[in-house]
Each structure stands twice: as C-alpha cells, then as structure tokens.
Amino acid sequence: MIRGVRGATTIEENVEQEIVPSTETLIREMIAVNDIEAENVASVFISVTDDIDAAFPAKALRNIEGWTYVPVMCMREIPVKNSLKSCIRVMIHHNTEKSQTEIKHIYLEKAISLRPDLQV
C-alpha cells in the first residue's frame, strides 16, 4: 500500500541557510517517526508559499544518506488569503504496511497551527 506522510514547517527568513536546514529537520523527523526507508519511497513533493524563493527546499533531501535517487519535486502553494506565510510543506509517498491511523504526520514551528488535531 502506498501511503502519504504529511509534514510542514515555517521559516523566519527567506534565505537558503534557513530553508534547507528547516526542510531537512522536518524530513528527518518524518522519516524517523514513520520508519521510512528510501527504497520504499515512490516520490516526495515539497511545496512553498509565495514568499519563499531563495532556494529549492528539495536540496535538503540530498543531504540525507541513501536518498540520492528518490524523486523529489518542488512547487508553489495556492496563495489563499490569510493563510500561513513562510511555510514549507512536504508529502512523502511510500510503500508501507501501516494503516492510515498509524501514520504520524509532522508539523513544526508555526505550522503546528495547520493541524493541531494531529499533535501528540
């Protein structure tokens, strides 16, 4: 079964030195709590809000050993009025035996406000 694991984080400043490490922290947490192995990943989608354009957050994935060949794509979020700014969202599609309720979605920094119902 292919399942999606969602995650999101925010940054304070639109600079590569913040975009890439913040994205890497988020992805590493998503991998760790869901026992994700690169070999079982079909793809990773990363979206950013309009105010993030200093770097591709997908660079973070290449900092993780064993994830060199995992397909990753960056895109823009829909610019909805009054939505959370400076937000990076990640969706990992991976093969797993886990049920939907066993998947742990990760929200960090100000992105916790997106899904407070999923916080432990």
Rank of each mutant, 00 (worst) to 15 (best):
I92C: 06
E39I: 05
E109P: 02
I64M: 13
V15T: 13
L114A: 06
A58D: 06
C87N: 13
M73Q: 14
N40F: 01
T10A: 07
V80A: 00
R76D: 15
L108H: 10
K110R: 10
R6Q: 01
V33I: 14
I46T: 02
L26H: 10
R6A: 07
A8E: 05
H93P: 01
V15S: 11
S83N: 08
L26S: 08
E12P: 04
T10P: 05
S113I: 14
V90M: 11
K85W: 12
T9A: 00
I27W: 00
Q119S: 11
I92M: 07
I27M: 09
L61W: 00
H105L: 08
E16H: 07
I78F: 02
V90Q: 08
C87H: 05
A8F: 13
P57Y: 12
A55I: 06
R62T: 06
I27L: 06
G7C: 10
L114Y: 01
M91C: 10
E29N: 11
T9R: 02
T9E: 04
H93E: 15
S86N: 09
N14D: 15
N34A: 09
T96H: 12
F56S: 04
G66V: 02
R28T: 10
N95V: 08
I52F: 02
H93K: 09
I64F: 14
Y107M: 03
L61A: 13
V90R: 00
E97K: 07
K98E: 15
S47M: 07
V41A: 08
R28E: 15
I64W: 15
S86A: 06
R115N: 08
M75E: 07
G4F: 03
E18K: 09
